[in-house]
């Protein structure tokens, strides 16, 4: 589904160049729920922004559903973002002037295919994620968890190949975080969604099939879930301690 090979990205500050991603390679299979973890500055969000082509990268290849994303024309990239990718951001990025239902339909409007089928799907997603009761409310009128679930529903409206989530629980309390993770689970179960999530939260990551650990712009390790969620979280925490050099 998603292949990233030898990805390099650096940021320029004045005359200095700071490498952030140093030859990252990874892959995500269909219906997989993958998390990327790592300390601040390890390059997690940069990796996600490169995959979504929000920011340009210097070297490497990214292939999504068999289609290479490097050097694509702007219009073609927009089409990929709209049709093949779904996005969930830490700060939700909902449009303030639109209701919850309208926000969910925005990718369809961009696609130019808002019909009764799309509206029915929007209603289905509202029900699936438990936000039908706020369908006609504006983002400012609902809770953080509801906003993020709206964002998850929005990311699924075009039935994309891959959902990219950047710290989706970062701004939420534990109850809301759980609700968002449940929505990802639901999306995978009912809509065959593939999810690639960047997170700091080991609890959220412990729901994933696989966790990729990043350190200093490179893949440090990859952990696959072979046990129950709680044990997997413990293993994750141990590995994170090891990665940070805390061996006591």
């Amino acid at each position: 589904m998603l292949y990233v090979k030898n990805l390099y990205k650096s940021y320029e500050t004045g005359k200095k160049s700071y490498p952030v991603l140093k030859g990252i390679s990874l892959s995500v299979a269909q219906r997989e729920f993958v998390a990327v973890m790592g300390p601040s500055g390890s390059g997690k969000s940069t990796l996600l922004n490169c995959i979504s082509c929000y920011i340009p990268f210097e070297e490497g290849t990214i292939t999504l559903g068999g289609q290479g994303l490097k050097d694509m024309h702007e219009d073609a990239l927009a089409k990929v973002r709209n049709e093949k990718l779904g996005f969930v951001f830490q700060d939700f990025m909902l449009l303030d002037g639109l209701t919850v239902r309208e926000n969910i339909l925005v990718p369809r409007i961009i696609h130019g295919t808002v019909d009764s089928k799309a509206e029915a799907l929007a209603d289905e997603l509202l029900t699936l994620f438990g936000i039908s009761h706020v369908a006609d409310k504006y983002p400012a009128e609902i809770s953080g968890g509801e906003r993020q679930r709206t964002a998850v529903a929005r990311s699924l409206i075009n039935q994309p190949l891959l959902i990219l989530a950047d710290e989706p629980t970062g701004n939420l309390d534990s109850k809301s975080s759980r609700a968002v993770i449940d929505s990802f689970e639901n999306a995978r179960q009912h809509l065959n969604a593939t999810i690639f999530m960047v997170t700091h939260d080991s609890f959220a990551a412990s729901f994933c099939d696989r966790v990729i650990l990043l350190k200093d712009g490179a893949v440090y390790d990859t952990l696959e879930k072979a046990e129950n969620r709680s044990d997997f979280q413990d293993r994750l925490l141990t590995k994170i301690k090891e990665m940070s050099g805390d061996t006591e």
Partner: peptide, 9 residues
């Protein structure tokens, strides 16, 4: 936001 959701120029 619109660009991120796939709106082209």
């Amino acid at each position: 936001t619109l660009m991120a959701l796939g709106a082209s120029r």
